[in-house]
Design a protein around this nucleic acid. Structure first.
Lengths: 142, 142
DNA sequence: CTACTGCTTCGATGGATGTCAAGGTAGACG
DNA sequence: CGTCTACCTTGACATCCATCGAAGCAGTAG
C-alpha cells in the first residue's frame, strides 16, 4: 500500500499546487484545471455513503477509525465499503494504514481546510461582495 | 419558473433544517439523512463544468451573471450548459431570474457558508483535534 | 504448514449521468 | 401578426458508477 500512498501524495501535491491554499471560489473564477482538480474531490464527497464514512473517520476518537468500525454502520457489503474508502483515498481525503490485523483510516485535515477556504463566500472586497444593491436578492416572492 | 424556485426554497429550507448551520463534519458523525442532503450538494459541485460555472457566477461583478456570459467560456452546447445550471439550481446553490431577454444567475452565499462551516476540520476540543501526535501528517511541502 | 479472519481486488450488471440534436417557450422588435 | 434572439426541455445515446459475489492477499493463531 506504500506505493498507493506515494501516488496519493503526488495527487495531493498536485492539487495543492494547482488550487493553491486559500483562493475563495467567489473571489475570481476558477481555471479549467483548478475546477477539474477540485471537482475530483467534491465528486468523491458527492455520495452519502462516502460523506458519512468521512465524518465517521473524522469524528472518531483519536482521529482514526478501523474499517471494522465502519462496516457495521451501513447495510452494504464489505467490498462496497472498501470501494468507497478507495475513492476517498484516491481523492486525497483520507489515508489508510495497516497495523497488524486491522486497517486504520484517518482524514487529511489540511485538505478539508483547503476546501473550506475555497468555499467561503465573497470575502469583503471581492467583486461579488457588493451586490451593487441593484436589488438585494428579491428573488421570486411568488 | 416561480414554481421551480418555490421547490428550490423548500429544498434549501429542508437542507438547512437537516444539516443545521454549523455542525463541523469532524465534530460528530453525520446521520444518514444529513449525509444524503449534503451529498446532493457536493455531487452538484463534483463536475468541473458546474464548479467553474459556480465560480464564474460567484465572482462576477454584481454577484450575478447572464447565461450568455457563461456559454462562451466552454466548448459545450447551449443545452448542456443549461442542464448544468439546472443541476446547480436544484441543489440550491444558485438561483435564476429572467429579466427581459436574458436570464441572470446568482449564488446563494448562505449555502456556501454552510458548506464551508461543515468542512472546517476538527474544532478545538473535538475528539479528532488531538491526533495523538502519532505522526503529525507531514503532508506535501512540495 | 494449515486454517481462519480482515480487507482488498476482479468481473459483471443495473441504474445514473454528461452530452448533443431537435423542438419548444418567453420576450423584443417591427 | 410574424420573426428573431435567448434560453430551456425533450429524447436518445454513450459512458460512468454503485453494488454485489467470488476470488486473492496479508497477518494471526494453532
Amino acid at each position: 500500500m506504500s506505493k498507493q500512498d506515494e501516488a496519493q501524495e503526488r495527487v495531493l501535491a498536485h492539487l495543492a499546487a494547482v488550487v493553491g491554499c486559500c483562493e475563495p471560489l467567489a473571489r475570481e473564477p476558477l481555471t479549467a484545471q483548478q475546477s477539474t482538480e477540485l471537482a475530483r474531490v467534491f465528486k468523491a464527497m458527492g455520495d452519502p455513503v462516502r460523506l458519512r464514512l468521512l465524518s465517521l473517520i473524522a469524528s472518531h476518537a483519536g482521529g482514526e477509525a478501523c474499517v471494522c468500525d465502519l462496516t457495521d454502520v451501513f447495510d452494504l457489503s464489505g467490498p462496497t465499503i472498501s470501494h468507497h474508502l478507495k475513492v476517498l483515498r484516491e481523492a486525497g481525503l483520507i489515508t489508510g494504514e495497516r497495523r497488524g490485523t486491522w486497517v486504520y483510516y484517518r482524514v487529511r485535515p489540511e485538505l478539508l481546510d483547503q476546501l473550506s477556504a475555497v468555499l467561503v463566500p465573497a470575502a469583503p472586497g471581492s467583486p461579488a461582495a457588493m451586490p451593487a444593491d441593484r436589488d438585494a436578492l428579491p428573488v421570486v416572492d411568488a
